[in-house]
Computed example of a mutant assay.
Amino acid sequence: MDNFLRRSGLEVPEPVRRFLQGEADPSLRIEQYQEGDTLVVRIDLPGIDPETDVDISVDDDTLHIQARREENAEHVVKKGYRSELRYGERSRSITLPRGVSGDGILATYEDGVLEIRVQLPEQSESRTTKIRVVRTGGHEAGGHEENQSPEEPENYVT
């Protein structure tokens, strides 16, 4: 889209250009992985003050991240102003495993990257229970003939 706008010579207002280039998405882009018993979430956030422009909270096993980046009003009014940087407020919520404690979360900001490290709770071995599906009504190809009754499953309660 950007190449088309440049080649056509159209003067497109900055907010419209950003929308056309897909910058209207209000969510933060993340990188997430697990390192041992720690969940690591990384977000590129250059040009912010992490003490005033970032809010991180945990609520009901969900990590909420909100970040703001303000556009310099002095630059916007200058002739020929163009910015491809993302401004405004963006947020992201990440579901955490049950039992994560807010005390086990550390957030750092270095070289424009916000890194959040979440200490994961010890997980007991999960048990998987297989649920059997019972066919009811209707006849499918390869099913039972009309005079036959379907076999009752072993664990079927009547």
Rank of each mutant, 00 (worst) to 15 (best):
1 M>N: 12
3 N>Y: 02
4 F>G: 06
4 F>Y: 12
6 R>Y: 07
6 R>W: 00
7 R>C: 10
7 R>P: 04
9 G>Q: 02
11 E>T: 13
14 E>N: 12
15 P>W: 14
17 R>P: 00
18 R>T: 01
19 F>P: 01
20 L>D: 05
22 G>F: 03
24 A>Q: 11
24 A>G: 11
26 P>S: 05
34 Q>F: 00
35 E>D: 15
35 E>M: 11
37 D>K: 15
37 D>R: 15
40 V>P: 06
42 R>E: 13
44 D>V: 04
44 D>K: 08
45 L>C: 06
45 L>M: 09
47 G>M: 04
48 I>L: 05
48 I>S: 02
48 I>R: 06
48 I>P: 00
49 D>E: 14
49 D>R: 09
50 P>S: 05
52 T>K: 14
53 D>T: 01
54 V>E: 07
57 S>C: 03
57 S>D: 11
62 T>V: 14
66 Q>S: 14
66 Q>N: 15
69 R>G: 04
70 E>A: 15
71 E>T: 07
72 N>M: 09
74 E>K: 10
76 V>H: 07
76 V>Y: 07
77 V>H: 02
77 V>A: 14
79 K>D: 10
81 Y>S: 05
81 Y>D: 03
83 S>T: 08
85 L>H: 06
86 R>H: 08
88 G>A: 05
88 G>R: 07
89 E>C: 12
90 R>F: 10
90 R>N: 08
90 R>H: 14
92 R>E: 04
97 P>D: 00
98 R>N: 04
100 V>G: 07
103 D>Y: 07
104 G>V: 00
110 E>R: 15
111 D>N: 13
115 E>I: 03
116 I>K: 13
117 R>L: 04
122 E>V: 01
124 S>D: 06
128 T>Y: 00
129 T>F: 03
130 K>W: 03
132 R>H: 15
132 R>T: 12
132 R>G: 07
133 V>D: 14
133 V>P: 03
135 R>N: 11
136 T>F: 05
137 G>M: 03
139 H>N: 15
139 H>S: 12
143 G>I: 06
145 E>D: 15
146 E>H: 03
146 E>P: 03
156 Y>K: 13
158 T>H: 11
158 T>A: 10
158 T>K: 11
